[in-house]
């Protein structure tokens, strides 16, 4: 029983950064912007979070720094694609490349340093209830943030007027603009929200998941988050399900390696990436589902005319 609980806990820890980053990107894509820079924003959040935590000794300040760094970094993308109407695919790619380089440079002096870890929640009494105690009351704080964030985004997108407006912009920026909606302003906010989420996801990596700084420690998670959004056909609760499936795959292959299953570890390590491809194929072969849910103006630059 204890082993099961432990495995479930590690799956949640592995799924949390995927979930947060994907939920952020979902909002961005719902507004019609495709930001391929998730990996870059995430790794910047990771290095910023680690650095701030390491220098101040407070993991909470680290977490806050991760969010701010992610948001600021996404602002770069926003200015380029929204104000200068550059190609979103190319700009997102360059954000990722820049983030990987910049984080490596900033993090040079952090390599091998002991980090600070965000403590798990511990409610006396409740956390020691057998089985469910630790699952519900004993996880790291970011886990709770991720669940709350998912619920909040669901509510925002589908239950509020602003959410409706945001979705309408994603489906037709021209019509939204004609109705007097500030398309660019909405998109700026969406992109910055996505950046903050990616930064938080990165902070989770360097402050909870493995409290240290390792170059390229995001290891493609930003890209998997992007795939999750497609997999979820732009619906928050499916992102949640997808993130946990991927968390399970990620943890499953680690456990398989630890148990010494006679398969080369490299093959097991490539499972999350292969699973992403398989899942993308399964979801995209259903053309109707994909077509129906893809924000119609996703990835198209918009220049308001006066």
């Amino acid at each position: 029983m204890d082993i099961t609980v432990n495995i479930l806990l590690t799956i949640a820890t592995a799924a949390t950064p995927l979930l947060i980053a994907a939920i952020g990107e979902l909002v961005v894509e719902r507004s019609g912007v495709l930001n391929l820079g998730v990996e870059g924003m995430m790794i910047m959040g990771a290095v910023g979070g680690f650095g701030a935590g390491y220098l101040t000794g407070s993991p909470w300040i680290g977490l806050l720094a991760a969010i701010i760094v992610g948001a600021l970094f996404s602002l770069l993308f926003a200015v380029m694609t929204l104000s200068l109407a550059t190609n979103q695919v190319a700009t997102g790619l360059s954000l990722t490349l820049l983030g990987l380089g910049l984080s490596g440079m900033i993090g040079t002096s952090f390599v091998g340093q002991p980090g600070v870890r965000l403590p798990n929640l511990d409610i006396p009494g409740l956390s020691s209830i057998p089985v469910v105690g630790r699952l519900i009351f004993g996880q790291d704080p970011v886990f709770y943030i991720s669940i709350a964030l998912t619920a909040a985004v669901m509510w925002f997108l589908f239950r509020t007027r602003t959410g409706l407006t945001l979705r309408s912009i994603g489906d037709s920026h021209t019509s939204a603009h004609a109705l007097g909606i500030k398309v660019i302003r909405y998109r700026y906010l969406a992109v910055i929200f996505g950046g903050a989420c990616a930064g938080l996801a990165g902070g989770h990596l360097s402050l909870v998941y493995t409290p240290q700084w390792v170059e390229n420690m995001s290891a493609g998670r930003g890209w998997i988050a992007l795939a999750l959004v497609v997999f979820a056909s732009w619906r928050p609760w499916r992102v949640l399900a997808g993130a946990y499936i991927f968390g399970a795959v990620w943890i499953g292959q680690l456990h398989a390696q630890a148990f010494g299953i006679p398969v080369p570890s490299q093959f097991l390590s490539s499972l999350p990436y292969l699973a992403t491809i398989v899942v993308l194929v399964l979801i995209s072969r259903n053309k109707r589902l994909t077509m129906m849910n893809t924000p119609a103006s996703l990835g198209q630059p918009f220049v308001p005319d006066r």
Partner: peptide
């Protein structure tokens, strides 16, 4: 890594 930063900035 400064090389990567230069490359990224250049593309931007």
């Amino acid at each position: 890594k400064v090389a990567r930063v230069f490359q990224g900035m250049l593309l931007f």
